[in-house]
């Protein structure tokens, strides 16, 4: 049972790291700000989500589980709000290219 949980944790976190790596690659390689933001928020949402899901079996208690989920939810809200804000700013700074 604990072996299964550990395997699940490792798989989910590896998948999460994959999304972070892809997001970082996108941040470095994508040509314009909007697509770079897209890559970053994807890493935040899915990458962190998978890491959190992977950590859930290791949380040990309901309180810790809820804390992990709260961290994910707060990052979701923050990056969902920061993304459009940055996009608006860049559109103002560099009009339609």
């Amino acid at each position: 049972m604990s072996l299964l949980a550990d395997a699940f944790t490792i798989l989910a976190i590896l998948a999460g790291i994959g999304f972070f790596a892809a997001g970082t690659a996108g941040l470095l390689r994508f040509p314009d700000t909007a697509s770079r933001l897209h890559a970053l928020t994807k890493a935040d949402h899915l990458g962190l989500g998978l890491v959190v899901i992977g950590l859930l079996p290791q949380a040990g208690s309901l309180a810790n589980t809820l804390r992990l989920l709260a961290v994910w939810a707060l990052v979701l809200v923050a990056s969902a709000a920061a993304g459009p804000m940055l996009a608006t700013l860049t559109r103002r700074a560099e009009p339609e290219t």
Partner: peptide
């Protein structure tokens, strides 16, 4: 409306 208002109400 917009992200700033959302954050100011939600957080």
């Amino acid at each position: 409306d917009g992200p700033r208002a959302l954050l100011a109400r939600l957080l």
